[in-house]
Design a protein around this nucleic acid. Sequence first.
DNA 1: CCCCAGTCCTGCGGGC
DNA 2: TGCCCGCAGGACTGGG
Length: 279
Amino acid sequence: MPELPEVETMRRGILPLVGSRVVDVRLTPCERRPILFTPDLATFRKQIQEKEIAQIDRLGKRVVVVLEDEGRILFEPRMTGLVLLADPPTQDHLRVHFSLHGTGPADLWYWDRRGLGSVRYYSDADYAAEFAQGKLGPDALDVDLAELRLRFATSRQPIKVALLDQKRLAGIGNLYAAEILHRAKIHPERTTDRLTAPQWKRLFDAMQEVLLLAIQYEGSTLGDGTYRNALNQDGGYQNQHRVYARAGSVCASCGKGTIVRIVQAQRATFFCPKCQGRK
DNA sequence: CCCCAGTCCTGCGGGC
DNA sequence: TGCCCGCAGGACTGGG
């Protein structure tokens, strides 16, 4: 499931497209899924044709292809979307194909097994309006300790639930929330207003460490194989997971506790009751 | 403000 | 062996 490290890996994977021009876009067969692709194909095509790709950014869990006129193509993979330079794994499912010309790769694909994600074009003005201040928090790798505290301390939500709120902080999802809290030795049910100063410091450090390490490993490819990098290769961070989907195993950190699974806000939470302290 | 359940979607694995 | 159902969860919506 693409979160910050996976989406950052996708972004880096398609950097060779910078400097190329868009020739065309085609979609199969997603016309029947209006949430996937906006605006309509004719308008989308008209806005991007012959535009040069100026840079490739990331906005939380979205890949942003910035064109020379500041128009932007946003890829939001949600659960199962992939941004690929290689051909999609199968001919089935929803696909969007961009053809390009330049010195880099000639094809860019968006492929989505479950079709929950989206591909959208925004003009500069529409983009500014859509992602105006407050709609999305700062990037998890772009805050300092003081801002982290500021954005969370007023909440009485459990810290695990708060970490998933993209309006507070962008980029963290269910998997990395669990791994970060485990590294920080903080109980996922502890409410944010009750975190101590040392806990804030540990949370901040763990967040940087886990996310940066996961980027180095090119993200997590789980058993279902839903996430892969732009060349359709597996990530490697799944082998470093300490708690996620490891209920019943002995904690690799303390060697004493057994990882448990609970449900918070209708999401699975994994943690070690021994080394992650009390609520 | 907060919380919760439901929605989208497909593939997989557990249970019978 | 085959079939059904629950689960996976990111973002959003509607109700309380």
